Amino acid sequence: MAFDWWDPVRDYCERAGPELWAEPLNAASNAAFGVAAFLLLRRGRAPDPAADAFAWLVGVIGLGSALFHTLAVAWSALADVIPIALFIHAYFFLALRRFLGLSALAALAGTLAFAAGAAFFEPVLSDLAGQPLGPLSNGSVAYAPAALALFGVGLASLRFGKRDGAALIGIGGLFLLSLAARTADAALCPVVPSGTHWIWHLLNAAVLFGLVRAARRAGPAA
């Protein structure tokens, strides 16, 4: 059967039909990303083009997710996941530069290694999660490399005497909480018809806000 960009996608508990507003909480909660982007772009601070670019990307993530949770078709799923993947890998590069002080070349090599490792281990982790947990994992294992990266870079920065990276550890904890909300969406669906995916949006907006703020405070790499 030929792939259709307009094939319906119903991945989340709240959606019970094809209507545009069939996921009201999942759709409306994306406004949190817009609020985060607005707060990050407020004037009255030192110029930081890289941090500003990430702030705009936070807004794009909210827009892509809103498209997916309203249209719920195949192409809008890409609008949801591509900006997130771009943020994860670009921020990893930025974190290596600002929190660990790596050169641009070393940070690029590290980012490519991270991307390759994530691509290799994601299906492995998905298979492992699929054995005991089945659908309860709800696809959240795809974000495991990002969570590990937060804790890894944060701990490494402390090891090298750079306290700015300590913020990444705290944000990593919040990210785990947001992942728990995303994972619980399918499991709690029988008793919570609205699901919990919207909580993932709210918490993840806070995670992205914190990451951009932390990078701005760390300052541009020398």
Rank of each mutant, 00 (worst) to 15 (best):
M1E: 10
M1R: 13
A2R: 07
F3R: 05
W5Y: 06
V9C: 11
V9I: 15
C13H: 03
E14F: 09
R15E: 15
R15C: 10
G17H: 13
G17Y: 12
G17Q: 13
P18N: 14
E23M: 08
P24D: 06
L25C: 10
A28F: 04
A31C: 09
A32Y: 06
A36M: 08
L40H: 11
L40M: 00
L41N: 09
R42Y: 06
R43Q: 15
R45S: 05
P47F: 07
P47S: 03
A51E: 01
D52N: 09
A53I: 02
A53Q: 07
F54I: 12
V58P: 00
V60R: 07
V60G: 04
I61F: 13
L63T: 15
G64H: 05
A66K: 00
F68W: 09
T70M: 03
L71W: 02
A72F: 01
V73P: 10
A74W: 10
W75N: 10
W75E: 04
A77Y: 13
A77F: 13
A79C: 14
P83L: 14
P83I: 08
P83C: 14
I84L: 13
A85M: 03
A85K: 03
L86I: 13
I88V: 13
H89R: 04
A95R: 00
A95N: 00
R97K: 14
R98Y: 03
F99C: 01
G101L: 13
G101Y: 03
L102H: 13
L102A: 11
S103Y: 06
S103D: 14
L108V: 12
A109M: 06
A113S: 09
A113M: 10
F121M: 07
E122A: 11
P123S: 08
L125Y: 04
S126C: 00
D127P: 01
L128D: 02
L128Q: 10
A129C: 14
A129I: 08
Q131M: 14
L133F: 15
G134M: 05
P135R: 15
L136I: 13
S140A: 12
A142G: 12
A147V: 15
L148R: 07
L148C: 13
A149F: 06
L150G: 01
F151R: 04
G152M: 10
L155W: 15
A156K: 11
S157C: 10
L158I: 11
G161Q: 05
R163D: 11
I169M: 10
G170Y: 12
G170K: 14
I171Q: 10
G172D: 06
G173A: 12
F175Y: 14
F175L: 14
L177R: 01
A180P: 08
A181F: 09
A181R: 02
R182N: 01
A184T: 10
D185T: 02
A187Q: 09
L188Y: 09
L188V: 15
P190I: 12
P190R: 12
G195K: 08
H197Y: 03
W200Y: 08
W200P: 00
A205V: 04
A206G: 13
L208G: 02
V212D: 05
V212W: 01
A215R: 00
R216Q: 02
G219C: 03
A222M: 02
